[in-house]
């Protein structure tokens, strides 16, 4: 696998959906397994090993879901923008398919970050929602993800949907830092010093470890989910081809 006709290994071999489909099928369970294992270890550390916070009590433990989810939500948008750009410049179909497959996972993590933020805010700040800079920019990030998915869903022509989505994702990538710093400035101008997300001055090593392991677990989950989704996208888009007919046993 991965060998061209001359016998040399070539990455381009996998840029065709037909040859990427089986590779994704082989890799997907491994990443899924890694995700389960890392999340299990991470959750164990966060619930049983990490010490109880002096000021927030056990409520702070939601940080182990909240922060990694927020990291992944931003990181996945960048990855999506990267593959969109590759698809737009090199005109490779698989890159666009990957970008399409990444969007729902990114939106999911954005939503998780917002939801756990609300759950965390209630016991610590006494309110479900604060117009904190990070929460607000997460909310706008969710809107960007939804816009990307809505645009792709609204366009029937597959190639046009890919390219239009790619342009939108790239415009979004340029805008994300601008939006983030605008919102940050806006919230420092508007709100008093009563609420601060960075109030924990020192973080125990085990807390950081738990958070990093959870982040790795979420990362592996993102890869596994994206691979599974891209396999579905490939089958759907290539359903007129012979190899898909052979793959699904002539049920097309």
């Amino acid at each position: 696998m991965g060998m061209s006709k001359t016998g040399r290994f070539s990455w381009y071999y996998f840029s065709s959906p037909q040859s990427f489909y089986p590779l994704a099928g082989v890799l997907q369970p491994w990443f899924a397994g890694l995700a389960v294992a890392l999340c299990a270890v991470g959750l164990y550390i966060s619930f049983f090993v990490a010490p109880t916070d002096a000021t927030q009590g056990d409520a702070y433990r939601i940080i182990f879901i909240h922060v990694p989810a927020a990291w992944m939500s931003m990181f996945l948008y960048l990855v999506m923008g990267f593959w969109s750009g590759v698809g737009l410049v090199l005109n490779t179909r698989l890159s666009s398919m990957v970008a399409t497959a990444l969007a729902p996972t990114g939106a999911l993590f954005t939503f998780i970050a917002l939801w756990t933020g609300a759950l965390w805010g209630k016991p610590t700040w006494g309110t479900w929602w604060v117009w904190d800079a990070r929460l607000t920019s997460e909310l706008i990030l969710l809107f960007l993800y939804i816009g990307f998915m809505a645009l792709q869903a609204a366009i029937d022509d597959q190639r046009r949907a890919d390219k239009a989505g790619a342009v939108l994702a790239l415009v979004g990538v340029i805008n994300i830092p601008i939006i983030y710093f605008s919102v940050k400035w806006w919230s420092t101008l508007h709100q008093g010093a009563s609420v601060s997300m960075t109030s924990a001055p020192t973080m125990a090593k085990t807390m950081l470890l738990g958070m990093l392991i959870m982040a790795l677990g979420f990362w592996m989950y993102s890869i596994a989910a994206t691979l599974a989704r891209v396999r579905c996208v490939i089958l759907e888009r290539e359903r007129h081809t012979d190899w898909v007919a052979a793959e699904i046993g002539g049920q097309s």
């Binding site: 809107f143 960007l144 809505a150």
Partner: peptide
Amino acid sequence: LLVLPLYV
């Protein structure tokens, strides 16, 4: 949906 978040 596309434009309003970018107007922020």
